[in-house]
Design a protein around this nucleic acid. Structure first.
Lengths: 260, 260
DNA sequence: GGGCAGACTTGATCTAAATCAAGGTTGCGA
DNA sequence: TCGCAACCTTGATTTAGATCAAGTCTGCCC
């Protein structure tokens, strides 16, 4: 159910995971390759310098804890590469993954003193960390940034509602079809060259993670994916990817149509 | 599954549901009895006048459609009395209620052109309606209001994550226990006299609504509530209320402890 | 105050997905 | 290149909750 032998994002404040030189760092946001797919696209040049100044860049290996359920909510993060999983747990270990944050997505927003969720890297992740006071200064100094964040949180809420529909009312088959299409969309938005992403879904997470995301067991996820493969709706591809052979059929299944 | 023979919140723009006199309306927000439990507590006197000017008050009977899935997102609402249900549906009619908005809660925020969810009154509801351009003006003119809205949406997102944990990983028993405790908390926050709300949960919605909220069937909800009643964990009370006889036990059940 | 519609409860049976139980695959480190 | 650990797949069986099927309760309109 869990697997983090790694360090936390806070473990070594001066450690090697951090970008080493502050002066190089002033340019970081200006030259960031995924800037325009993130919150940061609300910033002008001056704002980008302020962003770079307010944040530190972290490079984290798979299985690293970024945020721990119940710990003080000290920071806000922007994912710039890789995939992060967000989750909540019950005392006996049952876990629900509430979302995956791919490059361009933020995480760690909280109005409470402590985080109500955990976050852990799925693969190799690069992210920008903003400490809370610094984030608050940014919000006050750059109204367009605050407005953009409001829009981003509103979008996350709509996504969460969609996921509630999935968890509460969809069948295993419908859940897995929805997941694969969502991962295709995520890869499409994240991939540098659009061409190569065509009909490919990026699935860097394990079956355990997928099951905990969809409210299923790993066996049911595995069986359902196998069934889709047998029906030639999908095929395996390299690098933890899945090729969607029939988007239309999968869309029908995902939206609850009988069709298959 | 559905039940709205009533008018929509947009049906009669000049109709009787609206507060009749504009000059009385200038004071509306200033004298609002639940102001301090809502977004509006971020406003000074001048701001409250602007709020009153930017919004219209609506009084709606049970079963009225406030927002329709897929319709243009023209307005934002603040509930000031009663309970509203928010939901998403699948083409075949399966429905997931994503939340109940009680007095003091907002609804209708959307970055898309259309609403991705529906909203309908559960009982007699009073709400303030802000058209989109007016809301945007308010956000720009009153930074504290915008900051407060950001905090409110962030809280809604945390709530949604909690509900995903419930939908994906809790048993029927745990779901119903969680629901009853949440309704007790909601009533406690909404009730005028705190005393009378002690250990009472307000449950104005039908079994169908509860089932669609918890990802269960009405039969399972009914059986589970009956079982709690038989175990003397709860008892019926007047006015669609339920008295919680053992908060501690229900808390244990809700959080996944074996205890009962 | 009788009847009826909508909401709720309870019981019997069924089934989708969970659980239990073996293997099979893959990739990495010695 | 061998061995092992983590991950994944497939099959058999069980079960929590769904579905099917009657009732019962409540309040409201005539």
């Amino acid at each position: 159910m869990t697997s983090s032998p790694q360090t936390s994002a806070f473990a070594h404040p001066g450690g090697a995971a951090y970008a080493p030189k502050a002066d190089v760092d002033v340019m970081r946001c200006l030259v960031c390759d995924i800037r325009n797919r993130s919150l940061c696209n609300s910033m002008d040049e001056e704002g980008l310098a302020a962003l770079a100044h307010s944040s530190r860049q972290l490079l984290l290996p798979p299985g690293t804890t970024i945020v721990e359920e119940g710990e003080p909510a000290l920071a806000f993060f922007n994912v710039t590469r890789g995939t992060v999983k967000l989750f909540k747990s019950l005392p006996d270990g049952r876990r629900q993954i509430t979302g995956f944050a791919d490059a361009g997505q933020f995480l760690g927003l909280s109005t409470a003193q402590t985080y109500s969720f955990g976050a852990e890297t799925v693969d190799n992740v690069r992210l920008c960390r903003f400490l809370r006071p610094q984030l608050e200064t940014l919000l006050s100094d750059y109204p367009t940034f605050e407005r953009r964040l409001l829009a981003a949180v509103t979008d996350k809420l709509a996504e969460a509602q969609e996921q509630m529909l999935l968890l509460g009312r969809k069948t295993a088959r419908e859940k897995v079809a929805t997941f694969l299409l969502d991962r295709m969309k995520a890869f499409h938005q994240t991939a540098n060259r659009r061409q190569e992403a065509e009909n490919l879904a990026s699935v860097p997470m394990t079956r355990v993670d997928i099951a905990d995301y969809l409210g299923l067991t790993i066996e049911t996820v595995s069986r359902t994916i196998s069934a889709f493969r047998r029906s030639l709706l999908i095929a395996s591809a390299e690098n933890h990817r899945i090729r969607i052979l029939s988007v239309a059929t999968l869309l029908n299944i995902a939206s609850g149509q009988k069709a298959d």
